[in-house]
């Protein structure tokens, strides 16, 4: 049974963080590309719900949500976005390479699909050293078109790696729809071809989605074998940046309206949560991140000597 109060709190936290980024981006205090998680928070929250100490997570360039869901201290993440010296990686990583050291979220890659092979090795290290820890890796539907992801499915299956492949299928690669990119009619057929247990869910049915996460994580943890979890979702804002991009004409705002009917913050009653609880959390995290972002602005930039440190 999912603890929806906890899950929704994580979703609100991520949403408020991302909306803070939207509000301040025009001031140029974040001088790097940002790929927002708005609308795709729930998968990150559900990962956190099923995450155990010692597990590993591998994200991608759209990983604000994952990092926030796994972090216990958000300040280093804000500082990293601002490329400040006190950031998680001293300002050398930024939004596209976020990490959460306290919960084994390795820094992320901006090259589509590239984190997936790395997750194989991490999962093998867990197979060799742990009887219950697992790894999970997140990637979008564009990554399915990268050869390394298909290679990785084969390797994970052959090696029996304790790894959850999580496909966030938002139907878009930048502006390109699936129809022009992929001849695969059903992404869940791919893991099945490699003998990998396949699960699927959608943001349209949050209760079932939580069940699918629980099933996939439990299977991998117990069977010490990989699973593939396909999650249908929708990207609310532009691929990179903070704005809506309906003016480009490649998609319709009607699509968003349809997905928002299933959004937990718009309709918390879907999981029997009161709207007042969401309002309370929204104000709490709005104020929390407003203050934190303002404080972080005053923090120092990296030093000149940082340029050549930690190369070799």
């Amino acid at each position: 049974m999912n603890d929806w109060k906890k899950t929704i709190e994580t979703v609100v936290l991520i949403r408020q963080f991302e909306e803070r980024v939207q509000k301040i981006y025009h001031t140029d205090c974040i001088q790097s590309p940002v790929h927002l998680s708005i609308g795709q928070e729930l998968a990150c929250a559900l990962i956190a719900d099923h995450y155990m100490a010692g597990d590993f997570a591998i994200g991608n360039y759209r990983s604000h949500g994952l990092a926030l869901a796994l972090a216990t201290d958000y300040r280093p993440l804000v500082l990293e976005l601002m490329a400040k010296r006190g950031g998680t990686s001293g300002g050398k990583a930024g939004s596209m390479h976020l990490s959460v050291p306290e919960n084994n979220m390795i820094w992320t890659s901006a090259i589509v699909g590239s984190g997936v092979p790395v997750s194989l090795g991490i999962a093998d290290s867990l197979k060799r050293t742990s009887s219950n820890n697992i790894a999970c890796v997140l990637f979008g539907d564009g990554a399915i078109e990268e050869g390394c992801v298909l290679e990785s499915l084969n390797i994970a299956s052959l090696m029996n790696l304790p790894l959850v492949f999580i496909l966030e299928n938002n139907g878009l690669a930048i502006h390109a729809r699936k129809e022009v990119r992929s001849s695969v009619s059903n992404y869940s057929d791919l893991p099945s071809a490699f003998g990998i247990s396949s699960y699927s869910g959608s943001y349209r049915d949050p209760i079932d989605l939580a069940f699918q996460f629980n099933s996939a994580f439990t299977y991998v943890r117990n069977a010490r074998k990989p699973a593939f979890l396909a999650v249908d979702c929708y990207r609310w804002v532009e691929h990179v940046g903070v704005a809506c991009d309906w003016d480009l004409g490649y998609r319709s705002p009607m699509e968003l309206t349809e997905w928002q009917q299933h959004d937990l913050l718009e309709n918390p009653s879907l999981v029997s949560i009161d709207k007042d609880y969401v309002r309370f959390l929204t104000i709490k995290y709005h104020d929390y991140f407003e203050a934190m972002f303002e404080e972080c602005l005053l923090e120092p930039d990296p030093l000149k000597s940082d340029l050549l440190s930690n190369v070799y």
Binding site: S114, P117, V118, G121, A123, S152, I155
Partner: peptide
Amino acid sequence: DSLTGYGIGLA
């Protein structure tokens, strides 16, 4: 390609 990433993950 992927087995290089695998090695990086192990490392």
